[in-house]
Design a protein around this nucleic acid. Sequence first.
DNA 1: CCTGAAGTCTCTAGCAGCTAGAGGTTCAAG
DNA 2: CTTGAACCTCTAGCTGCTAGAGACTTCAGG
Lengths: 144, 144
Amino acid sequence: MLTIGKLGDAAGVKVPTIRYYEQIGLLPEPERSAGNQRLYGKSALERLAFIRHSRELGFPLEAIRDLLSLSDRPDQSCAAADIIAKDQLAAVEARIARLTALKAELERMITQCAQGTIADCRIIEVIGDHSHCAQDHRTSEAVG
Amino acid sequence: MLTIGKLGDAAGVKVPTIRYYEQIGLLPEPERSAGNQRLYGKSALERLAFIRHSRELGFPLEAIRDLLSLSDRPDQSCAAADIIAKDQLAAVEARIARLTALKAELERMITQCAQGTIADCRIIEVIGDHSHCAQDHRTSEAVG
DNA sequence: CCTGAAGTCTCTAGCAGCTAGAGGTTCAAG
DNA sequence: CTTGAACCTCTAGCTGCTAGAGACTTCAGG
């Protein structure tokens, strides 16, 4: 039996994140010790590792919820899993395409910047007016 | 003078977003009509278009705040703008690299899936165990 | 001039996916 | 038996908006 901290270490997931997953129903409520602390077994570790790996692969939590419920029914067809994975692949590809367009635009801006003053800075100028852009990159794309 | 709706249409930004930008100090508080409605001039439109385009280029709002304050001082050096843009480019490139690794992993999973049952589905199996992966993709990457 | 619809106002709450903190309890080592 | 790390619950915060409630303003048509 693992405490939440050990579980987190074993799966590479932070403790508050585990509690969060429990709260939103991705992880089942575990047993508790006499002193009310969470105790986890091997299956919880496997499930958490599954979740973590899915997150690393970029699946949103809702997709992971679906994948988990699929993996709970081993004798069913895996077509649904295939669809989820393909959707994710499509999302990743779309994101790469958008980011690649952004990259080109940023590179263009930067190479054109003559390092003078703001008044004739291509960066500020290009940002101020989309018509200076070579490409369309209209869909917004957050980059943390 | 433009009402907030017209401004939004002109800049391609939704009305609540404009109010949000004002709230966080990205846009100055505009004049008001006799009936307390916001009224914007040309400079507000330019500023908002600048913000929108920056967002399209993926700049986070804090970076946009800096870019805006730079563009308010046209006679200064544009080195700071250059740094912000280069940081953004680096962030975009890092993101592309991570997504490309994810893409490869997803493709591998999907092509290996024999479309049988969950029990022998490579997708579920690979997700369940990172050691099945060809590459490292440890940094998590959200894809909306 | 009046009506009604569209637009605007403020305020609060919600989305993803956590993360951080307060203030208190439990557990394990020494 | 004491200490201090780890645990508990609860609330609030992060980014960048978006949605809704309930009230007011504006404008076009009649």
